[in-house]
Design a binder for these strands. Sequence first.
DNA 1: TAGGCGCATATTGTCGACAATCTATCTGGT
DNA 2: ACCAGATAGATTGTCGACAATATGCGCCTA
Lengths: 227, 227
Amino acid sequence: MHQPHPALRQPVTAADRVLLEIQRAIVEGDIAPGSKISEPELARRFDLSRAPLREALARLERCHLIERIPNAGARVVTLSTKGLLALYQLRENLEGLACKLAAEHMTEAEISEVRQLLDQHLSSQRVREGESYYQEAGDLDFHYRVILGSKNSYLINILCDELYYLVRMYRVQLGMNGPRVSRAFDEHKAIINAIANRDGELADLLMRRHIAASRRNIEQQLEQMGT
Amino acid sequence: MHQPHPALRQPVTAADRVLLEIQRAIVEGDIAPGSKISEPELARRFDLSRAPLREALARLERCHLIERIPNAGARVVTLSTKGLLALYQLRENLEGLACKLAAEHMTEAEISEVRQLLDQHLSSQRVREGESYYQEAGDLDFHYRVILGSKNSYLINILCDELYYLVRMYRVQLGMNGPRVSRAFDEHKAIINAIANRDGELADLLMRRHIAASRRNIEQQLEQMGT
DNA sequence: TAGGCGCATATTGTCGACAATCTATCTGGT
DNA sequence: ACCAGATAGATTGTCGACAATATGCGCCTA
């Protein structure tokens, strides 16, 4: 199996646990975008002191889910077309780079694991046609594997720890679905093939296109909401 | 003037102040690479409680200057050729992207400010020939301006807040100097010219080369030390 | 009536102490 | 002599209370 990245370690401390809960709540919209974060309220709600809660808030700021102002408190981020474009601009580049590096550094074993993963997704996809949750999880899992395959710890940290929760927030709250679901599988296949052929340049290009297509899909949803 | 980024805001809280002090101490080697961080000791040394200190440690982890393990404490990072390569691999891509975006988004006023900056550097450089500190500060200032010019907040955050302290640590501790000092100015000039011409592609390429050259320079120092 | 000032309230930042966990040493057994 | 387990010490994680700062309301003035 691929080695677990620090970010994916299971929670050991109270701050870890409450972080996961609040992360999920923000990503899924249980805590509304733009709403103010009240430390005393959250402390009561999760039944712990403010010390571990503040530790969790510091990490939430790190992954761009909240914004803090000294002596004034924290607010949940708001989703916007501008923010989406900035985020995906970065993703296209960083994940493109990750692909290029993965083509150089992934082992044959890791590559065949990813292929197995895609086959699993395909079969479960046929059964659960249209259920966006599985697509969501499966897509992220694929991207995670490729990113880890880059073997660049800074790159891994940025993509998996700092940007992905926000990416998920956009996808979950704007409802990722539609015809892209099946097309995404083919694109994943093409990318892993390029990596297997050690063609970093092509893998880079394909990943950029893959992410650009995903961006346009979400962008459409966002503008539909705005009107 | 260019708007101040959140990262460059002046310290308002005790945690902010102690963060700056420890950051400087680590970057300049006053606290040795690889050494263990003792919370009680640092609290005594800076004469404050552990609460703001832990807040500062959380941010030090964020900019990769320390590594924390739950229930076991924190250590200052160690410098290595592997780490340097991973860091600069990322920098080449991200700052290349920053240049491309800067070519699209920087105003004429911002561009002419950067040109003024370079002229200032050149004149002070002539006077203080060889003093690496000014080169250090001047080079970072140039890069900061271009990064801010990208107008992509996520990109700005990653480069200015999360990676640059580590970049400085490599440069300071391995002694950036030599013939590259004067050559770097010419490269900066070429980059801002490309941006002024709105040639994002060229600016990207030039910045990648500029950083790659800088990497080779530091790499050399590192291997020299290793032997 | 509109705008600015001052106070009351609530929230964030900081503190010192306690509980939980890890590290290092010492002891005992094989 | 070497390794395993237990124990003592130190360190990190968490707690509740206090201090400093910001927010919102009412009041006064022009």
